[in-house]
Design a protein around this nucleic acid. Sequence first.
DNA 1: CTGAAAGCGCTTACAG
DNA 2: CTGAAAGCGCTTACAG
Lengths: 336, 336
Amino acid sequence: MHGSGRVKIVDVAAAAGVSVTTVSHVISGRRPVSAATRARVEDAVHRLGYQADPSARGLRTQRTDTIGLVVPDITNPFNTELAAGIQEIAYAHDLLTVVCEAPMSGGPQLPAVLRQLTARRLDGIVLGRFGARRADLDLIAASGTRLVRLGTRIADGPGDVVRGAETEGMRALVEHLVGERGYRRVGFIGGEPGVEPGGERYEGYRQALAAAGHAVLPELTVWTGFTREGGRAGAARLLDAAQPPDAVVCANDLIAIGVLDVARQRGLAVPGNLAVAGYDDIDAASMVSPALTTVVNPAREIGRSAARLLIDRIAGDTGPAREVVLAHQVVLRGSA
Amino acid sequence: MHGSGRVKIVDVAAAAGVSVTTVSHVISGRRPVSAATRARVEDAVHRLGYQADPSARGLRTQRTDTIGLVVPDITNPFNTELAAGIQEIAYAHDLLTVVCEAPMSGGPQLPAVLRQLTARRLDGIVLGRFGARRADLDLIAASGTRLVRLGTRIADGPGDVVRGAETEGMRALVEHLVGERGYRRVGFIGGEPGVEPGGERYEGYRQALAAAGHAVLPELTVWTGFTREGGRAGAARLLDAAQPPDAVVCANDLIAIGVLDVARQRGLAVPGNLAVAGYDDIDAASMVSPALTTVVNPAREIGRSAARLLIDRIAGDTGPAREVVLAHQVVLRGSA
DNA sequence: CTGAAAGCGCTTACAG
DNA sequence: CTGAAAGCGCTTACAG
């Protein structure tokens, strides 16, 4: 069985009575081998439990059969769904996936993380984090590592892009609140100012109000942070206004959950006194009470698309850069 | 700058006017180099942007500087915290971490995933999934890959172990409900029967009741699944009993959230008519209403400990197998 | 249909 | 303090 020391391709060749060349070709299928020889080799591979050394193979082929995903926070449910989608496709293609964290603040800096990944000679990188400088992106591309960026535009840098239709999703949500449900004063709580995807989502909110002929009131828009705490702070500000809103849409679900906290604390019925809507449809969105009306952020499907794009490129696709946009989907629950 | 083709160690040697041997030693620090030479080499490395090829290095050193984590579900918050803890330590030691999913049902089978990882010659594996056969574990150990198992006992297989004090945690929780809060009929909703960590947690429940002199009533224990749906089904069963419980402790938070659903739907006040407690302290536990009384599952710290153990072993520690147990911590919130 | 041999880019005894 | 050279285990032109 597994004696001391690993089984090498020469061991298989000896056991099967052929050259290492032939063993290699049986395994890769890159050259025809007679049925009898193939059977002997396959038997030896199986009997000895041979598995090619990836370092040796990688040194020859200049591939690592490994792709990377960079996200700001690996515990964020959106990012784990993303990772799951990538892994699903990668696993089927015998690629390993490494997920790396490059926090928006604190922890390893993005350029350091990217440098580590290019040092590892990954075959491809999915960049699921905003805020990369153009120079860093160009360095990835120049190193020969394929790149897929998430949530941005094709013109913003090298590589392909996958994104959800965020502006359209938020617009559809707000149009529903204003049109079907008849809310008149719809407020908006954004995340950190200038941080995506807050801008895209705000744009949808703005478009919907404009299309309905409503004014976008500055006193009903507040930017805090993409957290529950941000939602609490934002809700307090909006509700303390001279004319508070009758509905609040939030840049993400965590913010909306913070708004629910404040509503409960102030004894406001949701959606009776205040309608609340989020964005992303995280797990917790259906666990809070009332359950959150929100827009699906198709994280898993974004991951799948990104992995497919990367794999096509690794396989040699040299066509022009592509941008894949995934449709939005509004989920109506109890909160709005 | 980065012309065509990657910078190799010979390029650095040529630029610095020394041998590749010296370049290698400057980088590794494994041999004294004169200050002047060192400076020339470091300058060349920096100027050319040299990064050693990991495949070539790995082929020589027989290391991949990569460790793996195997979990049943990478989107489960407990597992992402685990991964975050491992990555935190691994990153500081220049190790890459790959997280692989081997679902309890459907998807890639555990032996196939483990085979893929040993084929990749990982330096170490953290096994965060139950249900591995002894033979599979022995194969990992025999392949020279260091192993840390989570949530089991040292006697169950090769390698080191890290686990939380689950039985003690559940026992402390139930003792609080019975002792301080005075609940008399405390029910238990478990996950899938026979699936850990359900057994450990049930044992804590059992011990607490026994210590308080309460009988463990079979009609107050039900095994469903570690999901919100499982909690709903379990709650329905318990509440339809001739003498329903006045409190329910659950094998995890998702189950407890399912119980809250049923309580709300039936108009039962929590904790007035029915106290509810969970286990794990996932994010959603503090988002539901009332917020869940639960026990912290120190996932991140378990990850950190596992990574440290693995790194010690990779560094050459050959001492006897170790079992690290992390203390429990009950979190009292509104639900019980 | 098959094999002998070069070479991928490192690290590390060995030698001085 | 420094260097020439072997060799890690593969894949793949090249040759027949």
